[in-house]
Design a binder for these strands. Structure first.
Lengths: 247, 247
DNA sequence: CGGACTGTTGATCGGTATCAATGCTCGTGG
DNA sequence: CCACGAGCATTGATACCGATCAACAGTCCG
């Protein structure tokens, strides 16, 4: 076993500890090590969780990007949110009978796998972790509130500006981005499905942002060239993240 | 004190126990009685919680209807969801620093008030209730997933059919509706803001459903005249509610 | 080399917004 | 009791944002 592999299995060295995440107490880390069933690697494009199915596991993203989505029978698809380092996936399916949405990998992903059947122990014995789960669910709800406002009320141009700022803030918070850079593992079609517009129209809308000198998208990275003007276009309100827990 | 008033203060007689809600253990009821700060009446049209403000309380709806909403600076408003008997309001504000949305009463409301500062005791001592909180947050997330799919992908006609079915299912579950009836304490403008269309267009869209013989809206009640055809129009998938907890 | 996927651009169509006028109901005050 | 105004709903005319259909270019990869 290499040193790197060893580190991955020792929760006290969890890479998530580095960022703005809250620290766990020693007994919580001891429990998490039992709660954790292992790690899972998922190639880009693979489906982690499928709408309508039950899942024996829930996951914390250690690295890589994915997205949650939900489809209508006729193929129309809504991207509900993107997932990146530190995000919890599958809590819905652990709490209700089955998943109400699917999760797919955008890049190769590394996931920390937790056993659904031990979820109860969290509530029974670890108040901090129970709180963290509620906190995480409430945070996702906040993001959804924001997206719903966006899709319901903003124009295509505003929506796109909003989404780019949202993703860049989140990526920056977990150390995936610095300055005005945003890694872009998604295609224009993903953004279009997240914003409720067509891919064609997304392309045109992106052009407008480019021509206005607000963004640059090249070689898999977006740069937000003028954050203030972009925020003004988007009517952007940042997520208040403060002290963030994880599982 | 009248008998009715007495009953309201005794959590073991909580009116919510009547419906599909999960039963609490005696010690949980004892705690809830301490957790509960009292009851609050709110007249129709009043604002319970305001975006950007902090709230010392969270609330369970005992009776009446409200709605959660979020606005852009220029006045555009998105109705995020409706709230009725049994729904928990203000959890966001209890977990994050401040509310990210507002809550307003559609009818007079009666609310059970809980002290935010005692929320921690729930996690520290009552696993079932902690789980209930996470469950409730996850349920709200499910509803938001559904609404986002609706606003992002469905046409105005589909959205309206979907929302009416959604509300009727929820209302029926908590005993506010029977058969094909749905109490309609909201105006067309509320529905329009929930669906991301204008009130004018909502009126026209509703006409189409009326003329197709699918719905009837008179004297503050909507009747869903042909549930199957309505569900086909909406591509409706019901919420899986199963054993539902409350606080 | 060929094919799949992605992104771009043009032409046209259509769903929804906007603007405007009207009628209805209801509560209020003269 | 009636007049009035406010809020809500309806309907028509017109404008526009974004969808659709289509062609083509670039890149990647087997």
């Amino acid at each position: 076993m290499t040193a790197a592999e060893g580190a991955l299995e020792r929760c006290e060295l969890c890479p998530l500890r580095r960022f703005g995440f809250r620290r766990h107490a020693p007994e919580e880390i001891a429990f998490l090590r039992r709660f954790k069933r292992g790690e899972r690697h998922l190639p880009a494009g693979a489906t982690l969780l499928r709408e309508g199915e039950t899942s024996p596991d829930l996951y914390t993203v250690l690295s890589g990007w994915g997205f949650r989505h939900k489809a209508l029978e006729d193929g129309r698809r809504q991207v509900l949110n993107f997932a990146m380092t530190g995000d919890l996936l599958g809590l819905q399916g652990a709490i209700a009978r089955e998943m109400d949405h699917s999760v797919e990998a955008l890049t190769d992903m590394r996931l920390c796998v937790f056993a659904r059947e031990k979820l109860w122990e969290v509530f029974a014995e670890f108040p901090n972790l129970s709180f963290a789960l509620t906190w995480i669910a409430a945070r996702e709800e906040r993001m959804l509130d924001g997206h719903l406002l966006s899709v319901g009320q903003r124009t295509a141009l505003e929506r796109l500006a909003y989404l780019l700022l949202h993703l860049q803030d989140r990526a920056r918070f977990v150390g995936l981005a610095e300055g005005d850079v945003l890694p872009a593992p998604f295609t224009q079609a993903h953004l279009a499905d997240a914003l409720g517009i067509t891919a064609v129209h997304l392309s045109r809308t992106l052009q407008r942002l480019r021509r206005a000198g607000l963004v640059l998208w090249r070689d898999g990275t977006v740069r937000l060239l003028d954050r203030d003007r972009l925020a003004a276009v988007a009517k952007y309100e940042p997520l208040d993240l403060a002290e963030r827990p994880y599982v």
